[in-house]
Simulated assay, not measured.
Amino acid sequence: MKIITLTEYLKQHHTTQTAAAYNYTITHFLKLHPKAKRYKYQQLVNYFAEVNQQYQNIQTRIKILSAIKRYYSYLVFTEQREDHPCKTLTMKKGSSQAIQLQDLFSSSELEQLTQRENRYKLLESRNKILLGLLIYQGLTSDEIIRLDVDNIDLDIGTIDIKGSKKLNRRTLTLQGNQIQPLYRYINETRPAMQMVKTDKLILNKLGKPITVDGISAMIEPLNVLFPDRPLHPRSIRMSVISNWLNEKKLPLEHVQELAGHKWPSTTEKYIKMDTLKQRELINKFFPL
């Protein structure tokens, strides 16, 4: 194979302007990281974490990533190394801020939410079902209000979650302690509550389909349990996802499926970066 320089390689694949910009970025990168030619995946993950902090503009970060990717493509092309260490790294446009894991709730804390009694027995039954969907399946309020009765299959113990623009459709397993309460709710409580014709699973106290605001209102009185942290349906869902990863140690790709995330990078934000094992998870599945 004819040996070509990096500059020549860049000019073959890009316009003159882009090639020059990439060359500048790569030169700067190598000046700061003289051993980068042999960098492994995790070292590049760490580097791009620094890039994320240094540059606020997502387009700038994408350009840097593209240039560094091209550098390693060049090394593979010229047989200076066999693997491309950052080929799978991506940056999602519109990426949200980091998850504040210290504000979230453990599984045992979430279980405390189910202990509140309600003086209205019908609402107590309904609330138990609703809380279960939040703390066991990690559903969003929007997913809950779109659930129909026939989305529940008590024979095999599953619940079918409808997809949306933001989240994927998925089928989740019900907890053992959800089966009997759901059976009683669907066959006894819900018919007694229902005041309008509807297939929606969760009803409000007026017997109509519950709304997103209605779910928030149901959670609001529970704030007294944790006055120092924000408690609402979204923080509950975030806690569930974090607990799947950090308490139960489920694989990243499995948690992505459970949560319905379209991007692996969304799930990755919930990993606590405090142990070697968790860093190895990022090394295996990380997409910025």
Rank of each mutant, 00 (worst) to 15 (best):
T60F: 09
K165I: 08
K165C: 01
T16R: 15
V255D: 06
D83E: 10
V212C: 06
Q12N: 09
Y74L: 14
H28E: 15
T5P: 00
L154D: 08
Q59Y: 11
L30I: 04
K200V: 00
Q43D: 11
T15L: 00
Q180N: 12
E79L: 07
R170P: 02
Y183A: 14
F29W: 00
Y22W: 05
N223V: 08
R190P: 07
T18L: 03
T189N: 09
P227I: 09
L113A: 05
T266I: 05
Y270M: 06
Q42S: 07
V76R: 09
L222A: 01
E8Q: 07
S106E: 13
F48Y: 12
E143Y: 03
T88N: 12
P287Q: 12
N246L: 05
P34S: 04
R119I: 07
T198D: 05
T18G: 04
F105C: 10
T18N: 04
I129E: 04
D142L: 13
L6T: 06
L147V: 02
P287A: 11
Q115S: 09
M238Q: 09
V196I: 14
E247Q: 14
L167C: 02
S96P: 06
M1V: 04
L89P: 07
F226A: 12
L252W: 01
E257G: 01
P227S: 06
S125M: 12
A67W: 03
Y39P: 01
T5Y: 01
A21C: 05
K262W: 06
L131F: 03
L245K: 10
K93L: 07
E280L: 14
T198Q: 09
